[in-house]
């Protein structure tokens, strides 16, 4: 059994865990954009906050920085959600009362700012070298690397199902119907005024909390985080996933995440095979540019997504 988990299968497990990490983020963004029409350009920032919050709470004490507090991983995950939600409030309160593109600008701003903080506030974040020894719960009990990866995959899959179930219930509830009404019709939204602001804020905070949770999931899987894990490209990947999957559809969001991540890693592997090492950075840039163009093409020709709703 354990031997089977080595090699390609081990890679598949690793791939799926990361894909489901993206799926979680995409589900959070789907609540914001797909259901409420909120344009969050700072996805990477909220994931970053979640990852760092959980890492600070759960890592063993480090004399070089504040914390870690050595708390249990579930506490870290709750902390991740709360802190991502807190930052969502920080930008949501000033921006959500205004026209929708203000949110785009402020979320862009907070992602830039959080990236700076992660990079420079060494006493809290470890700076450019990031944070090591983020606990991987039950690592030894579950037989180390491969067995643990498989167990973590099951855990993340369960988490995705749970979040999906919860969001599906929420979005079909009366609360979700109000969100749709707000999304479809700015005028109707204006008519309910302050009310619309509250619904928007709730959806925005909730979506950001899911992103924070995803950040924690990532941190405890890799066991090491650094600012470069949460660059603007992450925001872009998640947007590509949501658009490919079709905004407003939970299943599409998950499928889009897995599909885009497969294309992303696949094209990355091809680059590794065919591009000499000295051209790697430039080839990677070309890959990103390609995804940028692809997103524009989908927006132009398949605005409801490649896998999305048929309605």
């Amino acid at each position: 059994m354990m031997e089977l988990l080595a090699g390609p299968l081990a890679y598949l497990v690793f791939f799926l865990v990361i894909a489901l990490y993206y799926a979680l983020i995409t589900l959070g963004l789907n609540l914001q954009w797909g259901f409420t029409g909120l344009f969050n350009v700072g996805v990477a920032g909220f994931v970053l906050v979640g990852a760092y919050a959980s890492a600070i709470l759960t890592t063993p004490d480090d004399p070089g920085r504040i914390g870690g507090f050595g708390l249990p991983v579930p506490v870290g995950m709750v902390g991740a959600m709360l802190s991502a939600g807190l930052f969502a409030l920080l930008v949501g309160i000033p921006a959500l009362r205004l026209r929708h593109d203000y949110l785009a600008i402020t979320t862009f701003g907070i992602a830039v700012t959080l990236q700076l903080v992660a990079l420079n506030l060494q006493v809290l974040t470890g700076g450019p070298f990031g944070m090591n020894f983020v606990p991987r719960p039950l690592y030894d009990v579950l037989g180390g690397q491969n067995g643990w990866n498989l167990a973590y995959l099951l855990f993340v899959a369960a988490l995705v199902l749970l979040v999906w179930w919860g969001l599906a219930r929420l979005t079909t509830s009366p609360w979700g119907r109000v969100l749709r009404a707000i999304r479809e019709d700015e005028a109707a939204a204006a008519a309910i005024g302050k009310h619309a602001f509250r619904f928007r804020l709730e959806a925005f905070v909730l979506g950001s909390m899911v992103m924070g949770l995803a950040g924690a999931v990532y941190a405890h899987f890799i066991g090491f985080i650094a600012p470069e894990d949460f660059l603007p490209i992450l925001t872009f990947q998640v947007w590509a996933m949501l658009i490919v999957g079709g905004a407003g559809d939970h299943r599409g969001a998950i499928a889009g995440a897995v599909l885009v991540w497969a294309i992303w890693t696949g094209s990355g592997m091809l680059l590794d095979l065919f591009v000499p090492p000295e051209g790697k950075a430039q080839a990677a840039a070309l890959q990103v540019a390609g995804i940028g163009v692809a997103l524009c093409l989908v927006l132009l020709f398949r605005p409801t997504g490649l896998l999305g709703r048929r309605d």
């Binding site: 344009f39 872009f236 947007w239 990103v288 940028g292 997103l295 927006l299 132009l300």
Partner: peptide
Amino acid sequence: MGSFGAALA
């Protein structure tokens, strides 16, 4: 969003 994609590209 299109401008975001164009910027990246």
